[in-house]
């Protein structure tokens, strides 16, 4: 079962994202900031990470820099999922190693489309 880690300081966003990801047959774990997210990655590297930008302790951008600095951290597909929707932010995220970018608010179709595009959608949900 594909493993999805959701890193977001909003409990509501984590809950909504979890419901969507579980609906797409992902196994899901949650982290409330980048530091907790890195610990989760050390325990088990996810297939895909949904990552908020603005969070206390460690923000999403710093998390991504740390993650991509390690050889094993190259593997997960990282999807920024944030209210920051200007083109400069998106470009920064891509330069730092993000694979995709979702501008909040989002819905199930958008998330499913991004997962499909990245090739991480579990087989039972692929087109």
């Amino acid at each position: 079962m594909n493993y999805c880690l959701i890193i977001d300081d909003s409990r509501v966003i984590r809950k909504v994202s979890r419901e969507v990801a579980e609906g797409l047959s992902f196994r899901v774990a949650e982290a409330e900031n980048g530091e907790v997210g890195l610990q989760a990655c050390q325990a088990e590297m996810p297939d895909v990470i949904l990552l908020d930008w603005n969070m206390p302790v460690m923000d999403g951008y710093s998390f991504l820099k740390h993650l991509r600095a390690t050889p094993e951290g190259q593997a997960p597909k990282v999807v920024f999922c944030t209210t920051e929707n200007d083109i400069d932010r998106i470009t920064r995220a891509l330069d730092a190693g993000a694979d995709e970018y979702i501008m909040k608010p989002f819905d199930r179709d958008i998330l499913a489309a991004k997962f499909q595009e990245l090739g991480v959608l579990p087989a039972s949900h692929s087109a």
Partner: peptide, 15 residues
């Protein structure tokens, strides 16, 4: 709109 550009469009092509 934001929803339309996110359904299926790879972010690199959006940029």
């Amino acid at each position: 709109n934001q929803f339309e550009v996110q359904r299926g469009l790879p972010i690199r092509l959006l940029v």
